[in-house]
Design a protein around this nucleic acid. Structure first.
Lengths: 338, 338
DNA sequence: AGAGTTACGCAAGGTTCTTTCGAAATAGGC
DNA sequence: GCCTATTTCGAAAGAACCTTGCGTAACTCT
């Protein structure tokens, strides 16, 4: 039992460093060298670590054995199923993209057709990378709508065909690994924290400005789904100006849109008191500085000096967030001691 | 190091059971009897466990040694500093109230006088229980306003004298143990989850209906403070109908008040998607079923079947929440392995 | 009073981690 | 080209801790 703890701690340290020496690793973990070596043997047996050739170096003394994390031991797949397209990223365990795939999708297609398109896209994506399905360790998918704990789309305003569809169950049949389904705005929030505008910020609200504006919320670095997966749907309240935002955008400029949306964004800022708000979604891709405009209109309505910034991941944020969620799942499983 | 883990696990099991047998305890922890005994010796040395006389019983065989958690090893103090009064609860480590103290407070008193009144109340409360100040293991205080991470009152609308006062620092000088300061609505939420309307509910919003209506939020059973301690202050937005609620109540009935407040409560329900909303505060104590009225007006504005119920702790919720927060702090310290 | 039952207490045994010490492998200097 | 200094490896001894097992103590029931 204690060995498992040590193996997990060693794995964590190994991932943090690049190609550490055995002695360096032992120092970082806080264990003795023989113990660390034993943990590494265990990790190597599971395919997660391997020894690499010692660096030709200017260092004095006997060359140290070096180890590295085998990021190619498994892969994570992130899928965005938007209204009118799919976007997939396949990454190794370090989150490096191995293969990407983008395809159009009819926005009025029935759920079965959408699912078939997703399955085809998955085949194409992992086929292009030359990776077998068994090497997938986790899959996550993001789509608009309220997703319940079982991965069923409980409510979806923008894609009515989607509503009630058991997406998690259906996708789970295609894979032997865990499959997670999550709301698109939630995933975008995760992605922006991972490698976007909110790097290492623990409390983030991501505002997805689209046909219907929703939000994804991270609290303490963790996704906040809410009891029924509907957290962040402040846009449902008409008085807050987040409904039918796309239609408003067509008639007015970015500044007027921001003024209209400001109460809704402020409501979320006041409710969560996040460190920052990231603004993304289709309406920000169309041009014009919506984030900048919101940064002028929202703070006067709030108490705290919350930062407001534009998304840095553009239309890739949902798929990247799905990858991150899949990687999180993998890491949880790897680090689990019992 | 392993001994600490075992001691913590044994302590947890000991608190869960009443007066368990050594063998029962070993079975519950999953360790062998000698190991459990060793952990108990360590706990007894720290004053946290003690052996009790074997029960005279109908059981066959040699009587088993029984142990119990020494709840009187330390005490927690919870303080409510409301606008016009103070309320204190002193409890043992099991949360049983040992002493209570209630005193009036001038609502226009300057901060220094308020602090002096609190200090006098603390003396009276622990004096009545015959407990020394050194036996206090943690103190928590609740008061209106936005409290920052250092325990300073960053913003307070209902008690202007309070604003900017370093309450945590000042109170810390009176005690040798940790002192925590927290917003009153936050503490009320904690209390209702502990022994009120939201027992064992992990995602709770507590609506404190008072002169200015604020909210306390629990996510995953843990208090959500926000980056600057201002979470739940949706009431700041004028359109949501939570401002100057007390003044409105004087002119209208409960039903009209609920209709006015509904968008504000709905905004929080939509933002957090909690399992339930607990309604409390001065406006509910005045009579009339505000929670029932809100239960009619709020759900039509929301997506999820969030329950709405009245507070069960009345005007004691803030002080009880303070006690719970202090106890949480103590437990964290006790269970900390490293 | 004796049999049966239950739990205690001590000792032996087995893991696992840490410490320690000699050997190995390389760079730099004479 | 050889020797020394430096750094790390590899294996064995040692310590800490948990578990298993067995004899004994204490109490109830017949």
């Amino acid at each position: 039992m204690l060995r498992r703890i040590n193996a997990a701690a060693t794995l964590r340290a190994l991932r943090g460093a690049g190609e550490p020496t055995l002695t360096e690793l032992a120092g970082a973990v806080g264990l003795s060298r023989p113990t660390t070596e034993g943990a590494l043997v265990e990790l190597a047996a599971r395919g997660l670590a391997e020894e690499v050739a010692p660096q030709q170096g200017k260092r004095l003394g006997r060359p140290a054995r070096r180890y590295r994390f085998r990021a190619e031991a498994g892969y994570a797949l992130g899928v965005e199923i938007a209204t009118d397209r799919t976007l997939l990223f396949l990454t190794d365990l370090d989150g490096h993209v191995v293969s990407a795939h983008r395809a159009a999708l009819a926005d009025d297609a029935p759920a079965r057709d959408r699912l078939a398109a997703v399955r085809a896209a998955v085949r194409a994506c992992i086929g292009a990378a030359g990776i077998g399905r068994k090497q997938l360790w986790a899959v996550a998918a993001g789509t608009p709508g309220v997703i319940d704990a079982e991965g069923t789309i409980a409510y979806c305003r923008v894609v009515p065909e989607w509503q009630g569809f058991e997406l998690g169950r259906e996708m789970g049949r295609s894979f032997a690994c865990p499959v997670v389904v999550e709301n698109d705005a939630n995933l975008a929030a995760v992605a922006e924290r991972w490698r976007g505008a909110a790097c290492d910020v623990d409390d983030v609200v991501y505002v997805l400005a689209g046909p219907h504006t929703g939000a994804g919320v991270l609290i303490g670095g963790r996704l906040h789904r809410g009891r029924w997966g509907a957290a962040g749907e402040v846009g449902v309240l008409p008085v807050l100006g987040l409904r039918d935002t796309a239609a408003v955008r067509e008639r007015t400029g970015v500044n007027a849109l921001a003024a209209r949306m400001a109460p809704g964004v402020a409501a979320m800022v006041l409710a969560f008191d996040p460190e920052m708000v990231v603004v993304g979604g289709p309406l920000t891709l169309a041009g014009g500085d919506l984030a900048g405009a919101l940064a002028r209109h929202v703070p006067p309505l709030c108490l705290s000096p919350t930062r407001i910034a534009a998304s840095e991941l553009g239309d890739e944020s949902v798929a990247l967030g799905a990858v991150r969620l899949a990687l999180d799942r993998i890491e949880t499983d790897l680090m689990r001691v019992d």
